[in-house]
Amino acid sequence: MEPLDLDNWTTQLRKGLLELCIVNLLAGGEMYGYDLVKQLGRVKGLVVTEGTIYPLLSRLRKSGVLATRLEESASGPARRYYALTPAGARLRSLMNTHWRELVGGMSELQEKGGREHG
């Protein structure tokens, strides 16, 4: 039997969390794409490759979770700003509820495992 590929496991875990991080970042208001990517890069443990965020943002916009607007920039190309749609805000609420349940359940499991083997 092959051992678990830890790198792949952490990659999949982080990928699944990226959407949650994005909707939570945007809960505070609209953000310029570049700033959004930079802030995601500062989330501890997330370890993102910057360019991979833009396709994700585009998909979230297409699925109605995010809305965008372009703003002209004096220093270069127009800047795209991202914001949560009402549907996105509802999704964020549901995702956070699931996340808290998951974290709670995982904590119980870890404590239980720690007691049994402690």
Partner: peptide, 9 residues
């Protein structure tokens, strides 16, 4: 859309 954002970045 992706290329436009990426170019700006």
């Amino acid at each position: 859309e992706i290329v436009s954002d990426l170019r700006e970045h």
